[in-house]
Simulated scan of single mutants.
Amino acid sequence: MSATAALSPGTREISIDGVRQVFHVAGTGPVCVVHSGGPGIEWEYLRMPGLEQHLTMVYLEPVGTGASGRLDDPREYRLDTYARFVHGVVEHLGVPKVFLLGHSHGGFVAQRYALDHADRLAGLILFATSPVTGPEFWADAVANVNRFPERHPDRREAAEIPQAFQDAVGATDDKAFTDGLRRVLPAYFDDYWAHEQTLEPMRAALRAWIDPQRGEEPAPFDVRDRLGSIELPTLVVTGAHDFICGTRWASMLHEGIPGSRLTVLSESGHMGHLEQPETFNRVVAEFARA
């Protein structure tokens, strides 16, 4: 298939190592492959119509989610697996280089891919992510979740967020995982209720699959000592009120990757593309043009 055909708008399906990989193409301009977070969360929360005016956005449905295929062994849902599927799509698109935007867990995938396949990238966009996970990372996230009700004392639903987070983490099937994420979703925003009318349809439609949560990494994700080898143009974006991948972790990325740019969205949490879309779109579009 020619690059023109592969990048025409619509839904595409290819096979990588015998597993179905679905992706969606929208927009015009330089190609930007987009990897959503989770793992296990449906891609559509990350749709960015504003950026489609500047870039040809290629939204992946990560393996194990949505219409993409499933792995026989859930333990194989690892970062190197996701990076392999990214590479399969990049090869299929048939263009010399692409931008790669990774959000949250997708940012872990993007970093892994950049370290292994820098020659295929025009630039790297690390959105609400971190160069490390492990006990300290998760302890920080849990502490922030537990403090979330203090930020919204007038919201009854805010008081339920810490328990909802624990329920999502402890889910054992798709329904429980999806329900838990829907309940905890306000924690992913600076002020969910200020945008509730716009965000509630997304929340109601949110779906998630538990198997990708069962992946077995050989070690906690930590590429801090390799960031200096990333010579790609890199944009780091985070929200000032991101409870899980906030400024502490974004600063590590910015300080570790030579020449990287850092943008902190002052009125956003983990979902800056939804809370401050105009600023987010402008910053990413300017980065891509540069």
Score class of each variant (00 low, 15 high):
Met1Leu: 10
Pro9Ile: 06
Gly10Ile: 00
Thr11Ala: 11
Arg12Phe: 00
Ile14Met: 11
Gly18Tyr: 11
Val19Asn: 09
Phe23Asp: 06
Thr28Arg: 14
Thr28Asn: 15
Gly29Lys: 03
Val31Trp: 02
Cys32Ser: 09
Val34Leu: 15
His35Glu: 02
Gly37Arg: 04
Trp43Asp: 04
Trp43Cys: 02
Trp43Thr: 10
Glu44Lys: 13
Arg47Ser: 09
Met48Asp: 08
Pro49Ser: 06
Gly50Arg: 13
Gly50Phe: 00
Glu52Gln: 13
Leu55Thr: 12
Leu55Ser: 12
Leu55Cys: 15
Leu60Ser: 09
Leu60Arg: 01
Leu60Pro: 06
Pro62Ile: 03
Pro62Leu: 08
Gly64Cys: 09
Gly66Ile: 05
Asp73Arg: 15
Glu76Tyr: 07
Arg78Trp: 03
Thr81Glu: 05
Thr81Ile: 00
Tyr82Asp: 09
Ala83Tyr: 02
His87Val: 01
His87Trp: 06
Val89Gly: 02
Val90Ala: 12
Pro96Gln: 03
Lys97Leu: 01
Leu101Ala: 07
His105Lys: 02
Tyr113Trp: 09
Asp116Ala: 15
Asp116His: 10
His117Ala: 07
Ala118Leu: 02
Asp119Leu: 06
Asp119Trp: 05
Ala122Glu: 15
Ala122Cys: 06
Ile125Met: 10
Phe127Ser: 07
Thr129Ala: 07
Gly134Val: 06
Trp138Arg: 03
Val142Tyr: 07
Ala143His: 08
Val145Asn: 03
Pro149Thr: 08
Pro149Lys: 11
Glu150Ile: 04
Arg151Gln: 15
Asp154Gln: 14
Arg155Cys: 12
Arg155Ala: 12
Arg155Ser: 14
Ile161Trp: 04
Gln163Asn: 14
Phe165Asp: 04
Gln166Phe: 11
Gly170Val: 05
Gly170His: 10
Ala171Tyr: 07
Asp173Val: 01
Asp174Asn: 15
Phe177Ala: 08
Thr178Ala: 14
Asp191Phe: 03
Tyr192His: 05
His195Asn: 11
His195Trp: 04
Glu196Ser: 12
Gln197His: 10
Thr198Ile: 03
Leu199Glu: 03
Glu200Phe: 03
Met202Gly: 15
Arg203His: 11
Ala204Val: 04
Trp209Arg: 08
Asp211Thr: 02
Asp211Gln: 11
Pro218Gly: 02
Pro220Ile: 06
Pro220Gln: 04
Pro220Leu: 11
Arg224Ala: 04
Asp225Phe: 00
Asp225Gln: 15
Ile230Ser: 00
Glu231Leu: 10
Glu231Pro: 00
Leu232Pro: 08
Pro233Arg: 10
Pro233Gln: 07
Thr234Phe: 08
Val236Lys: 00
Val237Trp: 05
Thr238Ile: 00
His241Arg: 10
Cys245Tyr: 00
Gly246Tyr: 04
Ala250Trp: 07
Ser251Lys: 14
Ser251Trp: 12
Met252Cys: 05
Met252Arg: 09
His254Trp: 15
Gly256Gln: 01
Gly256Arg: 04
Ile257Thr: 08
Gly259Asn: 13
Gly259Phe: 01
Val264Thr: 14
Ser266Ala: 12
Ser268Phe: 10
Met271Gln: 12
Gly272Tyr: 01
His273Ile: 01
Leu274His: 11
Pro277Cys: 13
Val283Trp: 01
Val284Met: 11
Val284Gln: 11
Glu286Leu: 02
